[in-house]
C-alpha cells in the first residue's frame, strides 16, 4: 500500500499528516491529520503532482532599491523551479511599479503569471546617479 507521512506546508501551522493510497476514495487517497481542507488537497497533490509557489526578485532600474520582489501568482510544478529562475532573472523593469503588476505573463506556459509583491517609487536621486 502506498503511504506517506508528510507535513502540510500550505500554511505555517504545519500539520503532520498521513496520506494513504485508497482506490475507493474519490481523490484516490485518504488523508488524515490535517486541520483543514486545504491540507487534504495538498496531500493528494503532493502524491500526484507536487507544486510550489516561487518567490524571487527582478532587477529594477531607477527604483529606490535595485531589486523588486516578485511571486508566481499560483503554484508551479516543483521540477520547474530552476528553469523558472532563469527566465525571471532575465527580466528588468523600470520604476515606478505598483504592487500586483504582472511582470511576466504565463511563465513557461504554466498559465501562471509572475507579479510584483511591492510597490516601488522612483528614486529621486537616480537621475544624478545615471550621469556619474
Amino acid at each position: 500500500m502506498e503511504k506517506k507521512e508528510m507535513i502540510c506546508i500550505v500554511c505555517p501551522v504545519g500539520c503532520h499528516m498521513e496520506v494513504v493510497r485508497d482506490g475507493k476514495s474519490k481523490d484516490g487517497y485518504e488523508v488524515s491529520g490535517n486541520q483543514c481542507l486545504r491540507g487534504k488537497v495538498y496531500g493528494v497533490k503532493e502524491m500526484s503532482n507536487p507544486t510550489r509557489v516561487l518567490t524571487t526578485t527582478v532587477k529594477i532600474r531607477e527604483g529606490k532599491l535595485p531589486r523588486l520582489p516578485v511571486t508566481t501568482k499560483g503554484a508551479i510544478p516543483k521540477g520547474m523551479m530552476m528553469e523558472a529562475m532563469k527566465t525571471i532573472n532575465q527580466v528588468e523593469v523600470k520604476a515606478p511599479v505598483k504592487v500586483g503588476r504582472v511582470i511576466i505573463k504565463n511563465l513557461l506556459n504554466t498559465g501562471v503569471d509572475v507579479v510584483a509583491t511591492r510597490s516601488m517609487e522612483e528614486e529621486a536621486r537616480s537621475q544624478s546617479q545615471k550621469v556619474s
Binding site: M6, I7, C8, I9, C11, G14
Partner: peptide, 12 residues
C-alpha cells in the same frame, strides 16, 4: 524553524 520550512526549503 517551522516544519514547513524544513520541507520546502531543505527537503525540496
Amino acid at each position: 524553524g517551522l516544519n514547513r520550512n524544513i520541507v520546502q526549503c531543505l527537503e525540496d
